[in-house]
Design a protein around this nucleic acid. Structure first.
Length: 548
RNA sequence: GGCCCAAUGGUCAAGAGGUUAAGACACCACCCUUUCACGGUGGAAUCCCGGGUUCGAUUCCCGGUUGGGUCACCA
C-alpha cells in the first residue's frame, strides 16, 4: 500500500504538514510551572453545575500559576447545537466572574491560538489526519450504520467487547484500488485510527487527583474524522490541546475509559501528553442510591435554577469550592472578607469520589454569604435580581432609596449578623411588611391578650410612642405599659411564677409586633419602627386598632 | 456482559499502621433573648464485608459486595 497516494486521494486539497502547524502555534512563552487550561463546552444552550465545577478548577489552576485559561467551543456535533449556545456559555463566564484570557467571544476570537471554534479548525484536523494516513496510522472505513449495528449484535451474542477492532475492522487493510472504487462510487466513509494496541498490555497515565492510573492499552480503531469531515471529540481533543498548548486537561471522569485512546493518539502524532485531571461527578440522592445529576430529572443541575431562585453567584461558587477543596470552609471561617481567589486551591485535595449535591449546605453557605454583605451590598444584588424576576418588588425597592437602605441595614454588620435570607427570591416575603402594598397582616392575638385589651394597649402605645426615644427608653415604656395592664414586666420573675400574671411584656410586645409587622416574627421591633418613621408606625397602630 | 473509578456518621469530609476517629451541614436538647434570626453549650450518629501481612489494620495487599462511569460518525 502506498500511503502517500492514499493520503492524496483522501485529502486532495490539503497541503500543510504538522510541522507547519508547529510553527503557526509555537509553544507559549510562560514562566516555569504556569498552567494552560481550557474550558471546552458544547454550545447546547445548557450550562450546568458540572460545567461551572470544572471551569473553577481550570480558572484557579491557570491563574494561580500565572498561566492561561481559555475557552474553546466544541461545536463538532451540529445536531446538538442550539442557536445562542455560545452566548449562553459566555454569559455564565460573565455571571460567575470566571475571566478567560483568550478564546471564543461574541464578536469573534481573541488570542493567538485560534480559531477557538472547532468547526472553524477543519483545516488543522485535516492536516493531521492526512499525516496519519501518510504514516499508515489511519484509513478510510466504509462501514454503514446498519453494519455497525449488526456488528454490535454479533459481539453481544459472542460476549466480545464492542467496537471496531481486530477482525471487525474490515476496511483496515483495503487495497488502494478498492478504496478508489468506493470513493468513485460515492460511498460515505469515516477516517479511523489504525490501532496497534492490545488490551492485554497496560499503560500508566498520571492524573493530578488520582495519581498514576494503570489502564489497558487501546485496541479500538476509533473514528478520527466523521463522514462530514468534522473530527470526533477524541481527535479534536488531541489536536487542539496540543496546538493550543494546553498542559492540564480538566474534564469529568466519564473520560477515563477513553484516556488510553487519547494517549495513543498523542503518541501517534509524536506529541507530548498533557497532564490530566479527571473530576468526580456531582451526584444526587435518588431513592435508595445515588446517581449522576441528570439534566432531565434535576432542575438544580441547570445554572439558570440558581439565578432564578436568587442564589448569589458568590454562594454557588463558595459551595462548589468547598466541594472541590474540603479545607476551603476552614479557610473561609478564618478569612471572612477575603475574595475566594486568595484561597490556595490544590488539586491534591480534591476528592476522587462523587459528592452528593447538598442543597441544605448550599443554603447555609448562601445565608452566610448574604449575611456578610452590608446594606449597600445587598441592594446591589437584590435590586438587579428583582428587576429581572419581580418588577413590582423592584419598583418598591426603588421608590425610596434611603428607606430601602435603612430596611436592608437592619441586623447587618457586627459580629453576629442575622441570617434571615437564604436567596433573593425570599426577600420580598421577608420584607413585605415594610411596604403598604405588600403588607398583609395576620392579627391573630396571643391567647392571653383578648382583643379589647389589645386595642387598649395599642391606643396607649400610640399616645406614648415618641420616635426620638432611644431603644432603652422605648422598651422601658413598653414594660411600664405592660405593668399598668397587669402583665409581668420582669421576664425572669414571670418565668418562675407565670401563674401570677395573665401574661408578660413578651405578650405585650407581640401585640405591638402584630400591629407594626403584621406577624409574630420580625427583626428588632425598635429598629423596624425607626426605619418606618412615626407616620407609618402610627398608621400601622391605627390600622390594627380599627381591625380587631 | 467487558473495561475503568470509587467506598469514614443522614450529607460533605479530615485523618494516621497504635487517636477519646477532627470539623461543617442537617437533626435533637438546653442557654441567651420582648418574637424570630444570630450566637453559645451539649447530644445522637461513621471507618462496606471476608481473607492476608503485622504484636496490632478503619489505614497496606488480595478477593467480594455495593455505588458510579463507559463501551457512538455525542461530547
Amino acid at each position: 500500500m502506498n500511503y502517500t497516494e492514499l493520503a492524496d486521494l483522501l485529502f486532495p486539497g490539503v497541503s500543510g504538514t504538522p510541522e507547519d502547524l508547529e510553527r503557526r502555534y509555537p509553544p507559549r512563552a510562560l514562566p516555569e510551572g504556569a498552567r494552560v487550561t481550557r474550558m471546552a463546552p458544547s454550545p447546547t444552550g445548557f450550562m450546568h453545575l458540572g460545567n461551572l465545577f470544572g471551569a473553577m478548577v481550570d480558572e484557579r489552576l491557570a491563574h494561580q500559576s500565572g498561566g492561561v485559561f481559555f475557552l474553546r467551543i466544541e461545536d463538532t456535533d451540529q445536531k446538538r447545537e442550539v442557536a445562542g449556545g455560545v452566548e449562553t456559555i459566555l454569559k455564565v463566564f460573565d455571571d460567575y466572574a470566571l475571566p478567560f484570557d483568550e478564546g471564543a467571544t461574541l464578536t469573534g476570537d481573541a488570542g493567538d491560538y485560534g480559531p477557538y471554534r472547532q468547526r472553524q479548525r477543519a483545516g488543522v484536523y485535516h492536516i493531521c489526519a492526512r499525516w496519519l494516513v501518510q504514516q499508515g496510522r489511519a484509513y478510510p472505513c466504509f462501514l454503514t450504520e446498519a453494519e455497525l449495528a449488526d456488528m454490535r449484535e454479533t459481539q453481544a451474542e459472542q460476549k466480545l467487547n464492542f467496537g471496531c477492532y481486530g477482525s471487525f475492522a474490515i476496511y483496515r487493510d483495503s487495497t488502494l484500488d478498492e478504496i478508489r472504487r468506493r470513493l468513485a462510487d460515492g460511498q460515505p466513509y469515516v477516517i479511523r485510527y489504525r490501532s496497534e494496541g492490545s488490551i492485554l498490555n497496560r499503560i500508566k497515565v498520571a492524573d493530578l487527583v488520582r495519581g498514576t492510573l494503570d489502564l489497558p492499552e487501546n485496541n479500538q480503531d476509533v473514528v478520527l474524522l466523521k463522514a462530514d469531515g468534522i473530527p470526533t471529540y477524541h481527535f479534536a481533543h488531541v489536536v487542539d490541546d496540543h496546538f493550543m498548548r494546553t498542559n492540564v486537561v480538566v474534564r469529568g471522569e466519564e473520560w477515563l475509559p477513553t484516556l488510553p485512546m487519547h494517549v495513543q493518539l498523542f503518541a501517534a502524532m509524536g506529541w507530548k501528553v498533557p497532564k490530566y485531571l479527571h473530576t468526580a461527578h456531582l451526584m444526587k440522592q435518588d431513592g435508595g442510591g445515588k446517581r449522576k445529576l441528570s439534566k432531565r430529572k434535576d432542575p438544580e443541575l441547570a445554572l439558570d435554577f440558581y439565578g432564578e431562585k436568587g442564589y448569589p453567584v458568590a454562594a454557588v461558587k463558595e459551595y462548589l469550592m468547598s466541594l472541590l477543596n474540603s479545607n476551603y470552609e476552614d479557610w473561609r471561617a478564618a478569612n471572612s472578607t477575603l475574595p475566594l481567589e486568595d484561597f490556595a486551591f490544590s488539586p491534591k485535595k480534591m476528592s476522587v469520589s462523587g459528592a452528593l449535591f447538598d442543597m441544605d449546605k448550599l443554603d447555609d453557605v448562601s445565608r452566610g454569604v448574604i449575611a456578610r454583605l452590608d446594606a449597600a451590598g445587598v441592594q446591589a444584588q437584590l435590586l438587579p435580581w428583582a428587576e429581572k424576576h419581580d418588577a413590582d418588588f423592584a419598583a418598591l425597592l426603588k421608590r425610596d432609596a434611603t428607606f430601602t437602605l435603612g430596611m436592608l441595614a437592619i441586623g447587618r454588620g457586627g459580629k453576629k449578623p442575622r441570617k434571615d435570607i437564604t436567596v433573593w427570591g425570599e426577600a420580598k416575603a421577608y420584607f413585605s411588611f415594610f411596604f403598604d402594598e405588600t403588607f398583609a397582616p395576620d392579627y391573630t392575638l396571643p391567647q392571653c391578650v383578648p382583643a379589647d385589651k389589645a386595642r387598649e394597649m395599642l391606643v396607649v402605645f400610640r399616645d406614648l410612642y415618641n420616635p426620638t426615644d432611644d431603644s432603652t427608653v422605648w422598651f422601658n415604656k413598653v414594660k411600664e405599659m405592660a405593668k399598668t395592664f397587669g402583665y409581668a414586666d420582669d421576664m425572669k420573675a414571670y418565668k418562675q411564677n407565670p401563674e401570677n400574671w395573665p401574661g408578660s411584656v413578651a405578650d405585650v410586645s407581640c401585640v405591638l409586633r402584630l400591629a407594626i409587622a403584621g406577624r409574630l416574627q420580625s427583626p428588632d421591633l425598635y429598629e423596624v419602627m425607626r426605619v418606618m418613621g412615626p407616620e407609618m408606625v402610627r398608621a400601622r397602630l391605627q390600622r390594627m386598632i380599627d381591625s380587631i
